[in-house]
Amino acid sequence: MTIGHTLLGLLESGPRHGYDLKRAFDERFGQDRPLHYGQVYATMARLLKNGLVEVEGIEAGEGPDRKRYAITDAGVTDVEQWLAQPEKPEPYLQSALYTKVVVALLTGRSAQDILDTQRSEHLRLMRELTRRKSGGDLSDQLICDHALFHLEADMRWLELTAARLDQLAEELAR
């Protein structure tokens, strides 16, 4: 899971309280899904156990957790390793859409309709993201673009498949 690495990365600039960490995370990366506080708590506990962070001090106060965390040298090394390691490309070999198309063809239903419907759905989402992008700041744009490019890839697949439906039907019939 990358949340642990992300939180470690946020700690590199200086020690923080757990609540601060959650706010900083949400602000930068949590547009769609803000972190639960419990998630932060559990993650920090794991990091502490692994010696990647240490508790710098506990302050008196009302909050549920007033521990101030700081990153250890091992933690810095861990962030470095994480950043240096490339992400594994998604193979995308399990496609629900492909399955639907084949089933439609096997059952004599219109695969073209399925593709068209999917296409419209994709475009609807893309439109929305585009609109959001147009109103948003740079981070909004980058995040939306990431999604848009992925959706675009799907769209290309849809188009390509639509163009080869006849061929596919023939092959299945054999």
Binding site: S120, L123, R127, L129, T130, L148, L151, E152, M155, R156
Partner: peptide, 13 residues
């Protein structure tokens, strides 16, 4: 280009 088409209100194929 789909991403260009995404600037539209609706599409015609």
């Amino acid at each position: 280009e789909v991403r260009v088409a995404a600037y539209s209100d609706r599409e015609v194929v």
